[in-house]
C-alpha cells in the first residue's frame, strides 16, 4: 500500500467512525480488509488537540517522567507501566545514548482502528485524545501489535492484563488536577530537564523529527547543558 492509498483508507475509516462517533463504530472497522483502493471508508479522524514533544538531546535519562506517569495513572512507581518510555544505553555515545518514546496521538490512529472492542477510541469530550477505556478493554493485545512505532507506544499492564496508552493524563486519577489538552500532564510537569513539552499543534507525522525536537534555548545551552553546543 502506498502512502496515498493508505491515507485514503484511513480517511475512510474515519468517516465510518465519525458516523457513530463512538468506539463501537470504530470497532466495526477492525474487521475491514485493507484494500489497495483504500476507499471503502472515506473519512478523516478528528485531530487530537494535544501532543507531547520531547528532546532526547536534553533528556538526562532520570526516568522521573516514567515514575510520574505510573504514579498518576496507577498510584505506583513502575517504569514498565509508564506510557512514556526512556530507553538508554550508557555505552552509546551522545546523542544516541538516550531516547524518549512517547505516544504520538497519531493523525491516523492505527491502535483505534485495530481495537476490536472499542476500548481504544477517540475521546471527543477531551480534545480527541486517543485513549483506551479499561472497562472496555479485553486485553487482546491487538492495539499493541498494531502500533506501527518501535517500540510500540501502547503499553501492556501485566497486573490488570489490559492495554493502556498515553491519554495526556485525562484519566490520571492521582494527578490531582485536570489533565488532557488544556490541563496538566504528569511527565511534562515533573521533567527536571524541561525535555518534554505539550503542544496543541499536530507535529509532522512523517518520521520522528516532528516529535523529537529542540527544546533548548540559549539559557539551556549556556547554563544547563554547559558549554555543549546545540546539536541541531
Amino acid at each position: 500500500m502506498d502512502d496515498l492509498s493508505r491515507r485514503n483508507f484511513l480517511k475512510g475509516a474515519g468517516v465510518a467512525a465519525g458516523a457513530a462517533a463512538s468506539g463501537a463504530a470504530l470497532m466495526s472497522l477492525t474487521g475491514c480488509e485493507v484494500t489497495e483502493e483504500g476507499s471503502k471508508f472515506p473519512l478523516t479522524f478528528p485531530e487530537s488537540e494535544g501532543y507531547l514533544l520531547v528532546d532526547h538531546v536534553k533528556c538526562a535519562g532520570c526516568l522521573t517522567c516514567m515514575m510520574a506517569c505510573s504514579l498518576a495513572h496507577y498510584g505506583v512507581a513502575n517504569p514498565s507501566l509508564s506510557r512514556i518510555q526512556i530507553v538508554q544505553n550508557c555505552f552509546e555515545v551522545f546523542p544516541n545514548d538516550v531516547r524518549q518514546f512517547q505516544c504520538r496521538q497519531c493523525e491516523f490512529p492505527v491502535c483505534v482502528m485495530a481495537c476490536p472492542s472499542g476500548a481504544c477510541h477517540i475521546d471527543e469530550d477531551h480534545g480527541n485524545v486517543r485513549v483506551i477505556d479499561p472497562d472496555l478493554c479485553t486485553g487482546c493485545g491487538t492495539c499493541i501489535n498494531a502500533c506501527p512505532q518501535t517500540p510500540h507506544r501502547t503499553i501492556w499492564n501485566p497486573e490488570t492484563e489490559l492495554s493502556s496508552k498515553c491519554d495526556l493524563c485525562i484519566n490520571a486519577k492521582y494527578l490531582g488536577e485536570e489533565g488532557g489538552p488544556g490541563g496538566r500532564q504528569a511527565c511534562v510537569s515533573v521533567c527536571p530537564m524541561f525535555a518534554i513539552q505539550f503542544t496543541s499543534t499536530m507535529p509532522d507525522q512523517k518520521g520522528d523529527a516532528g516529535y523529537d525536537v529542540n527544546l533548548r534555548n540559549d539559557a539551556t545551552v549556556l547554563c544547563n547543558v554547559h558549554d555543549f553546543p546545540v546539536v541541531r
Partner: peptide, 24 residues
C-alpha cells in the same frame, strides 16, 4: 576550555543531574 558535545545524565529520580555524557 572544555567544549564537547554531550548532555547531562541523572540517576533515577534525579532533579540535578551531575554527570556529563559525551560524544567525543
Amino acid at each position: 576550555k572544555v567544549y564537547s558535545a554531550g548532555h547531562l545524565v541523572g540517576c533515577p529520580g534525579c532533579f540535578a543531574p551531575c554527570k556529563k555524557h559525551s560524544s567525543i
